[in-house]
């Protein structure tokens, strides 16, 4: 397996202490990554899609040398993880933790120049790089202000800019559009796309299905520390070709969703609550035949059906088909 990033059987196990009241505690073992295999090619915009707690950030932290993996091996930009960590860090631009990774008492420009120095850029080079990034992200008007006065979106933009300071061939972006409003998120995605077109390899983690669909060349769907599916967006959707997706909105209980899942002809059913509305996603190879049984089961469980919409297969449906859960669920390993 070759690639700009090569991951072979990477595992990470934590020992977490569980507290029970004031004095009692016990140690538990948490398997955050379970033997991940991946190869990311140069110039690729690669998405890691999964719900909160799936293991995406743990994988990113291992690849950026913040965490030592428990097992397996990985190569980033040709350098071996745990043996050439300094070279990995020098050749990766990373956005992790968003706005928390900045010094709030310093100005945006001071932040960029400081991190430039930590990438061993000499003063003239880091001043030039900081100016280029400020221009690229249109931060000129706020560049001399203390970061603490920035809006959340402006801080995220600056945190993204920080990842560009060393002009690395590989960008690792962990949920970069979190807390951004829709236009700012679109703008940032456009910059990521443009950087990718200019030859930068990008690893982009997200739990927002539409982001992965519109932006990424290939996507790995991650859940509970494992890669469940891997391929281009059309390939992943095609893997569910025989399935049709029907979305039912209304007041639907968990019991009703379970009853639907048990119906003959239904392969998966997952319930998600969005803005007070429940949406039941049902997958079936024969949706028309199953519809009367489906409505019968829902009404038998006092569900109020407001809308039934047959839909195109999305990446979220791929996730549901593999896990029986939606991306909105928190699947943190307990």
């Amino acid at each position: 397996m070759q690639g700009q990033v090569r991951i072979e059987n990477l595992g990470k196990t934590y020992h977490a202490r569980q507290r029970r009241g004031l004095f009692k505690s016990s140690e538990s073992r948490v398997e955050a990554l379970k033997g991940i295999h991946l190869a990311i090619q140069p110039g690729e915009l690669f998405g890691l899609l999964g719900p909160n707690g799936a293991g995406k950030t743990t994988l990113i932290k291992c690849l950026t040398t913040l965490l030592l993996p428990t097992s397996g091996a990985a190569w980033v930009n040709g350098y071996r993880l745990t043996e050439q960590d300094n070279l990995i860090r020098a050749t990766v631009g990373c956005m992790l933790m968003g706005e928390r990774g900045l010094y709030w008492k310093l100005s945006g420009r001071e932040n960029l120049e400081f991190f430039g120095a930590l990438y061993h850029l000499m003063p003239a080079t880091r001043r030039r790089r900081a100016a280029e990034i400020i221009d690229l992200l249109e931060l000129g008007e706020i560049a001399e202000r203390a970061v603490e006065t920035y809006s959340s979106g402006q801080k995220m933009k600056l945190a993204f800019g920080k990842a560009l300071i060393n002009d690395a061939p590989l960008l690792i972006l962990d949920e970069p559009t979190n807390t951004l409003d829709l236009p700012s998120a679109r703008e940032l995605r456009a910059v990521v796309g443009a950087l990718n077109e200019r030859g930068k390899t990008v690893i982009y983690t997200t739990h927002i299905m539409s982001e992965a669909e519109t932006l990424c060349d290939r996507v790995a769907i991650v859940d509970r520390g494992e890669v469940l599916a891997l391929g281009s967006v059309p390939e992943l959707k095609a893997s569910l070709k025989r399935e049709a997706v029907t979305r039912i909105e209304g007041i639907i209980s968990n019991a009703a969703a379970r009853a639907v899942e048990g119906l003959p002809g239904v392969s998966r059913a997952a319930l998600a609550a969005v803005n007070g509305h429940n949406t039941l996603t049902v997958m079936s190879p024969e949706p028309r035949a199953v519809l009367p049984r489906l409505i019968e089961a829902l009404t038998a469980h006092q569900a109020v059906v407001q809308k039934i919409v047959p839909e195109e297969v999305t990446l979220e449906d791929v996730f549901i088909a593999r896990t029986g859960r939606t991306l909105a669920d928190d699947t943190r390993v307990k």
């Binding site: 008492k105 310093l106 120049e113 400081f114 930590l118 990438y119 850029l121």
Partner: peptide, 30 residues
């Protein structure tokens, strides 16, 4: 790529002084 793969003593000193400057800037705000 702008980052230096094999930093010299001057690069390291520049990074250390940037850390010193950061702290001084920070305390100058208090």
């Amino acid at each position: 790529m702008a980052a230096v793969l094999r930093p010299s003593l001057a690069h390291k000193l520049s990074a250390a002084l940037a850390e010193t400057r950061l702290r001084l800037l920070n305390i100058s705000r208090y």
